[in-house]
């Protein structure tokens, strides 16, 4: 387990607890009471820390190296039923954007999402979860295929942004994202979107237009990362914490602003601290949401979705 800076008090207590238990095992000293004391303190410390996370700390949580990624959710939710589908039928198969069919319960879903890597090698292989235009086009191809057969779509968002590369520009990164956004506004099957990690700007929205947009508790979603925002508006990388505050990028803020529909609570200490519990919460919320949407006619579904996005924005006059 890796610890973030603000989690260090937890690390310390967990180490104490471990030592205490070792002493208990290796000697005749009765440590039950001491262990209990430490456990109690540990729980209280955890509660205290995770209750009061700042926006920047949430951003750090969303990037925690132990956090479950798209494929982890897919494996947990669909088991062996998942059939990965590749390629945009144009230039290549983008490894940063994965997709395929799978069953959750007895319902088939088309699932697409950005995928990050677990170590240096796979991080590079997955391009750090930054898709190229072919990734967005692959996602659209799969969503259109789902539409053709009346299969609902789930999109899982976890990206630091669409890849700002030379070839990405040549192959029309902007156009690919724009096309996805437009087609998703009028796709005739339910779209359930879950932000499971980072939701950075157009790269996220490119697979993020949904009938319901759900956000895990320790994720962020905004128009720019706090670091880039700091570098543009403050002309320095040092103001990322202020930028994270200013951007109102947490799940709570996004819900309050009516830009997302629901927050999925995470276990104490974040999604990675109790993966099974997280998967279960995500699964239940997806199935509940699908139940709400499945009986709507395609016409109502699309017009409700369009209405929802037309409502977004605050202005006067």
């Amino acid at each position: 387990m890796e610890y973030l800076e603000f989690e260090l008090p937890i690390k310390e207590l967990e180490e104490q607890l471990e030592k205490c238990q070792v002493i208990g095992e290796e000697s005749d000293v009765d440590v039950t009471e001491t262990c209990k004391q430490i456990e109690k303190k540990l729980l209280a410390t955890k509660k205290e820390i995770y209750k009061n996370l700042t926006p920047w700390q949430r951003v750090q949580m969303s990037r925690h190296p132990n956090r479950p990624y798209t494929l982890d959710y897919i494996k947990a939710l669909c088991g062996d039923s998942f059939l990965e589908l590749h390629g945009d039928r144009n230039v290549k198969d983008d490894k940063a954007m994965i997709g395929g069919l799978g069953k959750i319960g007895d319902q088939s879903f088309m699932i697409v999402g950005q995928q990050k890597g677990y170590n240096t090698k796979t991080r590079q292989y997955r391009n750090f979860g930054m898709a190229n235009p072919e990734g967005y086009r692959k996602a659209l191809r799969l969503m259109k295929s789902a539409e053709k057969f009346g299969i609902p779509v789930i999109t899982l968002i976890d990206t630091p942004g669409a890849y700002p590369g030379l070839e990405a520009e040549e192959r029309g990164q902007g156009e690919a994202i724009a096309r996805n956004i437009l087609e998703m506004t009028r796709l005739k099957v339910p779209i359930i979107t879950v932000i499971i990690g980072e939701g950075a700007s157009g790269g996220a929205l490119g697979i993020g237009v949904g009938d319901r947009v759900l956000m895990l508790e320790n994720t962020w979603y905004s128009v720019i990362s706090p670091e880039s925002c700091s570098s543009i508006l403050w002309r320095s990388w040092e103001y990322k914490e202020q930028a994270a505050d200013a951007l109102k990028l947490t799940a709570k803020d996004m819900k309050r602003l009516k830009l997302v529909d629901e927050i999925i609570k995470e276990p104490l200490g974040g999604a990675h601290n109790d993966r099974e519990k997280t998967y279960l919460a995500v699964r239940d919320t997806i199935l509940k949401t699908h139940d709400e949407l499945k009986n709507l006619s395609p016409k109502d579904l699309v017009s409700n979705r369009m209405e929802k996005y037309l409502e977004m924005g605050v202005f006067k006059g």
């Binding site: 956004i181 929205l205 905004s222 128009v223 720019i224 200013a246 602003l257 996005y309 924005g313």
Partner: peptide, 12 residues
């Protein structure tokens, strides 16, 4: 911030 991001969807 995110309000401006959602204008991409709104205009689309």
């Amino acid at each position: 911030a995110a309000l401006s991001l959602m204008q991409l969807a709104k205009t689309s």
